[in-house]
Design a protein around this nucleic acid. Structure first.
Length: 298
DNA sequence: CTCGATCCCTGGACGC
DNA sequence: TGCGTCCAGGGATCGA
């Protein structure tokens, strides 16, 4: 499942492999994950891939300016979200096509850039100009670039659970289920705590934990749980360093207590019930009102 | 603003 | 071997 470290790994690989290459043609298979398939077919052939960047969990293939056109459309890019199972890999034309290959871009060096995605939870879009910048603006801060003050500001005014906030791409871009759980474990914060109720020291601990974990994970080329592969087709190694994610029933690395799993923000959340203290149960106001009404009737 | 529920999709794990 | 069932999850969307 590609989150920030995995996408960063792919982006670096693709930057090395693809920068300067020209797209000669494109062939589409299933297109239900593509914003506007016709735009890919009409806009991509002839364009060069100027550079490859990561933006949150997106890959951004910045396209070269087309000669002889004005610059209004100059800032153009192919946005690729790998979803759960997406892979973007350059292959020699003669290599056998993997099942679930949905996009093939012929390059000028005898290779093709192939997008493979069994579940098609990914997204692909050709965007340019204001549409592109507008799309990018929808997202929150990059967790590796955000300052502690900005990080705190984005969390402390909020009533949502901290896990939900970490996963919310408009708060921070790039954090997914694995790295949310790993950083909450490291910072000893229960996933169901409300963002606004974290103490300053806890916010700081979370900020530090998140950045440390993301940096280490990038060094190890991400986590390969099931099928993540980088641009060279290699798996990452950070899954060997997971302390919380996927470890239900296993002993906590700090205190040996059996880790537990619960649903928070609709996602499986792994945590240590000893190190990560549960928030006191507070009745929702609606629930409280109902109770008062019921009691009054009696 | 925030929540949960639902949907999208396929492969892998599991039970029989 | 072959079913059927359940689950994984990022993000969009909808209703509360």
């Amino acid at each position: 499942m590609p989150e920030l470290p995995e996408v960063e790994t792919v982006a670096r690989g693709l930057q090395r492999e693809l920068a300067g290459r020209r797209i000669l043609g494109i062939t589409l298979g299933k297109t239900d994950f593509i914003d506007n398939p016709e735009a890919l077919e009409s806009e991509l052939p002839g364009r060069t891939i100027a550079r490859v960047e990561r933006y949150g969990k997106f890959l951004l293939l910045r396209l070269g300016v087309v000669e002889g056109t004005n610059t209004s459309d100059g800032e153009a890019a192919l946005l690729v979200h790998l979803g759960m199972t997406g892979m973007l890999i350059p292959k020699a034309v003669r290599e056998l096509q993997a099942k679930h290959t949905h996009v093939v871009m012929l390059l000028d060096d005898g290779r093709e850039l192939r997008y493979i995605d069994p579940r098609r939870f990914g997204r692909m879009a050709y965007l340019a100009g204001k549409v592109l910048s507008g799309e990018l603006q929808r997202f929150g801060a990059d967790p590796l670039e955000v300052s502690l003050e900005e990080f705190a500001r984005r969390i402390q005014g909020r009533k949502a659970r901290i896990k939900a906030l970490l996963l919310d791409q408009s708060v921070l871009r790039g954090v997914g289920n694995i790295y949310a759980d790993e950083s909450l474990w490291k910072a000893k914060i229960h996933p169901a705590r409300l963002g606004g109720r974290l103490k300053q020291a806890e916010v700081k601990a979370l900020y530090t934990a998140l950045q440390k974990i993301l940096r280490k994970a990038i060094l190890l080329r991400g986590s390969s749980i099931s099928d993540f592969r980088d641009a060279q087709g290699l798996p990452g190694e950070y899954q060997q360093h997971h302390r919380a994610y996927g470890r239900e029933g296993k002993p906590c690395f700090r205190c040996k207590t059996a880790l537990r799993r619960m649903m928070v923000a609709g996602r499986s959340s792994y945590f240590c019930p000893h190190c990560q203290r549960a928030p006191r149960l507070r009745k929702r106001t609606g629930e409280l009102k109902r109770r008062m009404k019921r009691n009054a009737k009696k």
